[in-house]
């Protein structure tokens, strides 16, 4: 046990300071924290790797008041990755509908923005816009954690979305 504690002590705090904390940017209608429901609508898992990276101590997403939640009922932001496969369309619609307003929709990655390399396939809808209205787009294959943080803050601090 002491080895574990020693390791924590030796590691120290690695979180990098960047940007403004959410509490200074929160728009009316949200509290001082942001809850994100992520839906993978058929991505290759590359974007998910970077979403996972946001939770590591360098980016420490949750220390800024942002967290990924299991239930769409608890969410403010719907974050979608993948080109939206035919098989995921209904699940995406149902998840969106279960999120109470005011809500935002953020499409992450080239696939979610326009279908990416899978655009011409019979099996995809060619991006989230083809299925539900999107408030913010973040292209990239995959976008870096810094770009993701920026986009999440931007989506959170923006004026009321068009989809409301």
């Amino acid at each position: 046990m002491w080895k574990l504690l020693l390791k924590i002590f030796q590691t120290g705090i690695l979180t990098e300071k960047r940007g403004r904390p959410l509490s200074q940017t929160h728009p009316p209608g949200f509290g001082k924290s942001l809850a994100i429901r992520h839906v993978d609508a058929g991505s290759c898992n590359g974007c998910e790797l970077e979403l996972w990276a946001l939770e590591n101590p360098y980016y420490a997403l949750s220390s800024g008041g942002v967290k990924f939640v299991a239930s769409p009922r608890h969410a403010d932001l719907l974050l979608v990755t993948g080109p939206v496969t035919r098989a995921m369309k209904e699940a995406l619609l149902r998840t969106r509908d279960a999120i109470p307003g005011p809500r935002r929709v953020l499409a992450v990655g080239d696939c979610a923005c326009n279908g990416g390399i899978f655009r011409d396939s019979y099996a995809v809808h060619g991006g989230v816009d083809g299925v539900i209205p999107v408030d913010h787009h973040l292209p990239g294959c995959p976008p870096s954690p810094d770009e993701l943080l920026e986009a999440i803050h931007h989506a959170f601090g923006s004026s009321p979305p068009s989809s409301e």
Binding site: D40, G42, T85, S121, A123
Partner: peptide, 11 residues
Amino acid sequence: LGYTHKGVDGL
């Protein structure tokens, strides 16, 4: 499974 089927062989 099959929810992420993107038609790769066809592409």
